[in-house]
C-alpha cells in the first residue's frame, strides 16, 4: 500500500485482512470481527467500553458492505490502488456456489445466481446473513444451509467441533434414532452454532432440542430429564 493510500480508510484493515483475500475469507473475517467486538467476546470487553465497541462494529459493517460485494470491492480497489483480486481456484468455487445456490433456493431465499463473471467468487447474501442473525428456531435443515453457505464441509465441521461425521449428519437430518441424549445434544448443537458463527447459540440449541423432545424424536427412556 502506498503512503497516499494510508491516509484513506483501509477497509481491509478494519476486517484484519489484506487486499488479496478471497470473497469467502472476507465473509469469515467479517463474522470473526463481529464476534470479536460483540458483548459476549472474551477478547474485547476488558479494553473497550460499549460506545467504542459500537463504533468499531459500525466500521466493520461499513467495511463488509463494500468488500462483501465483488462489484463494490472492485471499485474500491481501483480507487485505493490495490491490486484487483482474482480467484485462483475457479472450478472449486463454481462447484461450491452451485451447491450453495441449490440449498438456498430450497429455502426460498433469493441468491445472486453465478453469472459468467461472478461464478468464480463466493457471493455474500445479506438476506441470508440477516436470517442467520434473526434465527429464532433452529432446524437441522437450517444448520446444513448455514454450513454450506459458510463453505464449510462436513469434514471441516467434524474436525473443528471434534464431533463425528455420523453425528453431524444425524443432527442436520434430525434423525432421532441416531441422535445423542438431549443432555449431550444441547452441548453439541451449541458448539456447532458457535463454530458456524450463528449468534445466540445456546438459546437456539434449546429450541432444537425442545422441539425434538416435543415430537418424541429424542429423549427416550435412557434417563429422565
Amino acid at each position: 500500500m502506498s503512503a497516499k493510500n494510508e491516509k484513506l480508510i483501509n477497509l481491509y484493515l478494519v476486517l484484519d485482512i489484506t487486499p488479496g483475500t478471497t470473497q469467502n475469507e472476507i465473509l469469515h473475517a467479517y463474522n470473526r470481527a463481529k464476534n470479536t467486538y460483540s458483548d459476549h467476546s472474551v477478547a474485547s470487553y476488558a479494553v473497550f467500553d460499549d460506545d467504542s465497541k459500537e463504533d468499531i462494529l459500525q466500521e466493520i459493517e461499513h467495511a463488509f458492505e463494500v468488500l462483501g460485494s465483488p462489484a463494490k470491492r472492485r471499485d474500491y480497489d481501483l480507487k485505493m490502488g490495490f491490486e484487483t483480486w482474482k480467484d485462483e481456484d475457479h472450478s472449486s468455487h463454481v462447484k461450491k456456489n452451485a451447491k450453495t445456490v441449490d440449498i438456498l433456493e430450497k429455502r426460498r431465499l433469493s441468491v445472486v445466481k453465478p453469472s459468467e463473471d461472478m461464478a468464480s467468487s463466493f457471493v455474500a447474501n445479506p438476506k441470508f446473513e440477516n436470517e442467520i442473525e434473526e434465527c429464532a428456531e433452529l432446524t437441522g435443515e437450517f444448520l446444513k444451509a448455514v454450513r454450506i453457505y459458510r463453505q464449510t464441509s462436513e469434514d471441516e465441521l467434524a474436525r473443528m467441533t471434534r464431533l463425528s461425521h455420523h453425528h453431524i449428519r444425524a443432527i442436520e437430518g434430525e434423525d432421532g434414532t441416531q441422535l445423542h441424549h438431549p443432555v449431550y445434544l444441547r452441548g453439541h448443537l451449541t458448539l456447532i452454532c458457535q463454530t458456524l458463527e450463528i449468534p445466540n447459540a445456546r438459546e437456539l440449541a434449546n429450541t432444537y432440542v425442545d422441539r425434538l423432545l416435543a415430537e418424541g424424536k429424542v429423549g427416550g427412556n435412557q434417563f429422565s430429564l
Binding site: 484484519d16 470473526r32 470481527a33 464476534n35 470479536t36 467476546s41 472474551v42 477478547a43 474485547s44 479494553v47 473497550f48 468499531i56 473443528m160 467441533t161 471434534r162 458448539l191 458457535q194 463454530t195
Partner: peptide
Amino acid sequence: RSQVDIDVGKAICSVCRRY
C-alpha cells in the same frame, strides 16, 4: 477445547492492533 477457543487468539491480535 474448541474452534471458538482457537479463534480467541485471532481476536486478541485484532484487539491489540486497535487498542
